[in-house]
Design a protein around this nucleic acid. Structure first.
Lengths: 228, 228
DNA sequence: CGTACCTTTGATGTGAATCAAGAGTAGTGG
DNA sequence: CCACTACTCTTGATTCACATCAAAGGTACG
């Protein structure tokens, strides 16, 4: 039933973060990492759990979110293959500020903190790549704040769709939503009802067509206009 | 008129980031840094400017914000002495995503990127502190998003006041607002009108007293209850 | 002491949440 | 293959928090 365990070294070397490491360094990291399988709905960690390392998504999808008293959680990020998370928390030796749940059958690599710290000692280039990676995330978050605070619900959705649109690809004009509309609504800080209504409006004005999880964009330029 | 230029090395060694550097390392950093004076309203950099280094506030106050078409800008952060900013952008070699403006007569240290990169090569401990510093910022931003998206205007203000409240200090019960109410409103993603009304409500219910920029908190516990 | 900017106060407007059903859609097991 | 349950998604009516508009005090400072 379960797919065969892939070689961790192979997986690691595909990550931007580890791109330029020497084989022996890769080995060291690989040795300090464990694989972790989760089925849909499985919890990787809870908010408040202590962090001993960071994670890389190999396959599947993981969502990071805040639990909420009334069960309506707030999704911070939806992570796919090749994306990593938890580095920041590891460096600070703090508990996780969010929880992580698998949205589908997922495979993860869990990389122990000690190995990273050891590598940091020896390879300044590694430090620099790590720093750059973290900076990128910071940058993204700053933009998220801009988004949340200055843009309407419609603009947020359009921005999201545009971001999903394969770079420069002018062929297909078709997007597959990466998650259920509920989850996307939460990511965009909207209720499912509102999201539904906006999809409807955009359809009516002919800017997009929605068929289940498929969104067709007949005129990219026109959609972009909503993005201000 | 201008205060005498202080010794950059003295300033640097007070910063958490540079706390444990060797004197010669401090020298190197100091050599690569320039001082920068700004008067109230002076611009340090604009959104979109290229980043060649990062900044440390020595004295005064700097605000980081997004420009906005209609002139109503969105304040991301208000930075005081000892705080630094721009590291993330420097590592990515990207232009600044926000602009920086002095809110009062300010003195800054501008630290060149090359010196930092060089130090990174030699001192893994420095790398680690840098990483931790950046991680902390990331953490804060994630919390900011939680704040913006899940909390009411009143809760945001109370949270802000609580954060301003000197740690554990049970003596004074008195806070000085670090900026004009306008600016604070923006930082909390509110209009000045709304902020004013909330201050009024909180005063009426006796949880706080407001006198200009001074806020008195007669009962800390009661204020905390608003914070949920 | 006057001009320019903060801050307050009141009246009104609105985007999105909430509440409340209903309509698909998808797995489950007989 | 067809109910049976359980979601996810839509649609409409209503509400509410906060923004916007407008105008009047306050305060700071050249």
């Amino acid at each position: 039933m379960t797919t065969p365990a892939p070689d961790p070294t192979q997986l690691l070397k595909c990550l931007p973060l580890f791109q330029e490491l020497l084989p022996e360094q890769l080995q060291a990291i690989a040795a300090a990492s464990r694989q972790r399988r989760l089925s849909r709905g499985g919890m990787l960690f809870q908010k408040g759990d202590p962090a001993h390392g960071f994670y890389v998504v190999v396959s599947g999808q993981i969502k990071l979110a805040f639990p909420s008293l009334q069960g309506n959680e707030k999704v911070i990020e939806i992570l796919g293959p090749q994306q990593s998370f938890g580095e920041a928390v590891m460096f600070m030796g703090r508990p996780y500020p969010v929880f992580a749940e698998a949205m589908s059958e997922s495979l993860l690599l869990c990389i122990g903190g000690e190995a990273v710290f050891a590598l940091l000692e020896r390879d300044p280039g590694f430090a620099r790549r790590m720093l750059a990676g973290l900076s990128l995330r910071l940058h993204t978050l700053v933009q998220d704040i801009e988004t949340y605070s200055q843009r309407s619900a419609t603009q947020r959705l359009v921005g999201f769709l545009l971001q999903l649109y394969p770079q420069g690809a002018s062929g297909s004009h078709e997007i597959r939503l990466p998650a259920s509309k509920q989850v996307i609504a939460s990511r965009l800080n909207l209720t499912p009802e509102t999201l539904s209504r906006i999809f409807h409006e955009l359809s009516n004005s002919g800017v997009i067509e929605v068929h289940g999880k498929t969104v067709v964009i007949p005129d990219l330029t026109r959609l972009r206009e909503y993005d201000l």
